[in-house]
Amino acid sequence: MRKDEFWEGVRGGFPIMLAASPFGALFGALAVDNGFTIGDAVFMSAAVYAGASQMVGIELFGNHVQPWLVVLSVFAVNFRHVLYSASIAKHVRHFTFVQKFFAFFLLVDPQYAETEKRGERGLPVTFPWYLGFGLVIYFPWIFNTLLGAIFGQLVGDPKAIGLDVLLPIYFLGLVMGFRKRDRFLPIVAVSAVASVAGMHFVGSPWHVSIGALAGILLAACLPPAETVAAPPVAIEKEA
């Protein structure tokens, strides 16, 4: 393993780790608030390692949505990763089988964006670089989850410090992070309306499936944009 490339990756991932850290802690605190133990929260960050979908998971799970529906929602939130792994395939072709196995585990949004950028510039995408970039985000993500979970347990009642408003607002921020994407506004608006209607007429948890399906159907029916965007545009700021 070439050390300088590993450290180059670490340096590249460092600012992203800093930006993601508060959200790792927030996830930990909210997970505990939603009935997860500290161990569950840390294990989830270590095993799933996908910020937005982890938030969806704990929010739905905390509201006693059936587990299969929670898993399906997580799958839908993470479905964009299919595009990422297809897209970086050309840059990681030379990785060994085991290296690929780990590399795809670490394929979060910024990892994808940086790998793509590096590959397009003609710089070598080596495994040490990739690993350095990924691990400097991965381990602090877990550690911050632990800190947040401990903090959440200490606070006890999250409403006392206004933590309960955080999740919807954080979600809203995440949604807005996708706003540069094709036909964002009508699709998200339709989902929102369908969700509220679903909640009103059918009830929880079906509003999630109904709302998401409505938006996805609209996305499928709208004519594709005339100019095909170059590589996927907006990269969410989650880890």
Partner: peptide
């Protein structure tokens, strides 16, 4: 990895996360 995705499929895949996230919080 060896296929080209249609722009329509790409749009659908890219819009899925926003759709799910907004439905969870809309109510």
């Amino acid at each position: 990895r060896n296929r080209t995705l249609s722009p329509r499929l790409r749009t659908v895949m890219e819009s899925a996360p926003g759709c799910v996230l907004i439905t969870v919080i809309a109510p």
